[in-house]
Amino acid sequence: MKYSRWLVIIPYFFLATLPLCWLLLTSLKTQEAAISSTASLIPSTAENIAPGDLSFSATLDAYRKLATPHTGKAHAFFHYLLNSVIIGLLSTLTSVVLGTGCAYGFSRFRIAGARDWLFFILSTRFLPPLAVVVPVLMMYRVFNLPNTHLGLILLYTAFNLSLAVWLMKGFIDEIPRAYEEAALVDGYSPFQAFYKIILPHSATGMAVTAVFCLISAWNEYGFALALNNAEAVTVPVYFAGLQGNIQGIPWPQIAAGVLIFVVPIAVFTILVRNHLLRGVTFGTIKQ
């Protein structure tokens, strides 16, 4: 029975990682090789390889082409990647700042109806984007916010606040109150106690929270699609827009772009692996 676990793990591991390996291989192919009806598996440095061979001549062309706009698109891939980076980073920053403050308030002060507020905050995470996006769009039209980076940054901040507050509250609850009490005795003001004691002690929590906020802003599609058609288009919306392209979908370029887009997320996932459980359950389960 000792080895029976492998009967489950090996097939699943193989099937689950195969699409990701295929992604890497595809990004090194030419369009002809990518949509050939005989798939080639082994990258090779040889120039001319007969069709039907198991190996293909590897090229970085797909990565190079990402720098030029695709047919029918106003900008190159990197333009949309930059949009994703700007929106992701700024919305993460604001959610972590507001979320940490809010979590600290709920963790340390007596606030009327605190439990109800906290559960209200959690419940906002469950709303389906498409069921709330139209009122947001109407509100944005009044303030000229559709099609702007700021519009998505504000929306993602609101969307991620529930996660940020709940995760940060879990982390701040774990910091002993005695630390701040000692600081207050030493003559710190309550705000100084927060600034000089709590913030340094919750650095790990803030980093973990930032990673989860960044990932959900980075991957978000529904809001980004509904609120944007020109200026602040993020990578998921850009890629989805390539569907039905007249010249055929440029698969090697898409594979290269997808790879560039998901590698940071994979790296972050590995960095926060010990906190993943907390992150996906809003801090309600602690390891």
């Binding site: 591991f13 699409p19 295929w22 990518a34 009806s37 990932i215 991957n219 599609y221 919306v237 996932t269």
Partner: peptide, 26 residues
């Protein structure tokens, strides 16, 4: 850790890419 990676990826982007994997011809 490796098994956990897919859940962190963008469904919209990976969904597009799966079209390529599942295409009927190639």
């Amino acid at each position: 850790t490796i098994l956990l990676v897919p859940m962190m990826l963008s469904p919209a982007v990976m969904g597009l890419y799966w079209n390529f994997i599942l295409n009927g011809h190639y």
